Computed example of a mutant assay.
Amino acid sequence: MRAPGASTSPFSALHHADAPLLLPNAWDHASAVAMARRGFPAIGTTSLAVAAALGLPDGAAATRDETLELALVLGSQPFLLSVDAENGFSEDPDEVAEFARLLAAVGVVGINLEDGMGAVDRHAAKIAAVKAAVPGLFVNARTDTYWLGGHDEAETLSRLDAYQQAGADGVFVPGLTDERRIAALVARLDVPLNILYSPTGPAVSHLADLGVRRVSLGSLLYRRALGAALETLDAIGAGRRVSGRTPTYAETLDYGVAAPADR
């Protein structure tokens, strides 16, 4: 399953391997390096965590510079980096393409672009502009029909068809957990389908059986990290022992200052 003209990069190849690409999403240098050291060949970023850590809104095109700065920090690390760029931080396809060029220049190999349920032709134009500007950059085109909309199967398929025709290398439908609908989408697509992992949805192994080629964790790890911090505070305040894995000071310092290496 590979669309004509699709990227044949190492990152693209991970979407066509025997098992789906399980993509953890980081929010800073330490989290990305720690995940990569667990054996993950590719790491994504999560726009919610990047925004929340800075006290900025997510999905409001407020973190363009910060996203690029994080890409600059992570792009030279020994893992493949895909960046969550919200809607491209602009409604102008040329400006989105320029942002994609900047990302590719610092070592980014993939970009996630969401439609926010806006105009189909506008999002398709952004995808086409990015692929024309940076042909080797893997474009993961996201539709929010299940994340924000009314779970309309026909609209979802119509949007994804437009995006893959515009040159998307993969498509992403966060919020979709119904097994029948996932399998139906896979059967109709020419490019890999990306699903957002849900603790209440199908297991990764079952998503693989359904034909899903990429499983993203989104903001889950960041939210779990915040939850662990609050649980720790509650335990200390209640006089209970703190449980769970806690990296040492030295380990954490190492994650934070790890030197770049060749891929």
Rank of each mutant, 00 (worst) to 15 (best):
A6V: 09
S7V: 14
S12H: 13
H16M: 07
H16W: 07
L23K: 02
P24H: 11
H29L: 15
A30V: 11
A32H: 11
F40G: 09
A42N: 10
L48R: 04
A49Y: 00
A60W: 11
T67N: 03
L68Q: 03
L70N: 12
A71I: 06
L72A: 12
S76I: 01
A85G: 06
E86C: 05
N87G: 09
F89V: 04
F89H: 12
E91Q: 12
D92N: 13
V96Q: 01
E98C: 04
F99V: 00
L103M: 09
G107R: 07
V108N: 02
N112K: 05
E114Y: 05
G116W: 02
K126G: 11
A132N: 06
P135F: 04
L137T: 02
N140G: 03
D144Q: 06
W147L: 15
E153Y: 15
A166F: 07
G167R: 00
G170H: 01
D178G: 07
A183V: 10
A187L: 05
L189D: 04
L189E: 05
D190C: 07
D190K: 12
N194Q: 08
T200E: 10
L207Q: 03
A208E: 14
G211C: 09
R213Y: 08
S219L: 00
L220E: 03
G227P: 00
G237W: 03
G237H: 03
G237F: 01
A238M: 03
A238C: 05
V242L: 02
R245N: 06
T246N: 04
E251N: 08
L253I: 14
G256K: 04
A259K: 13
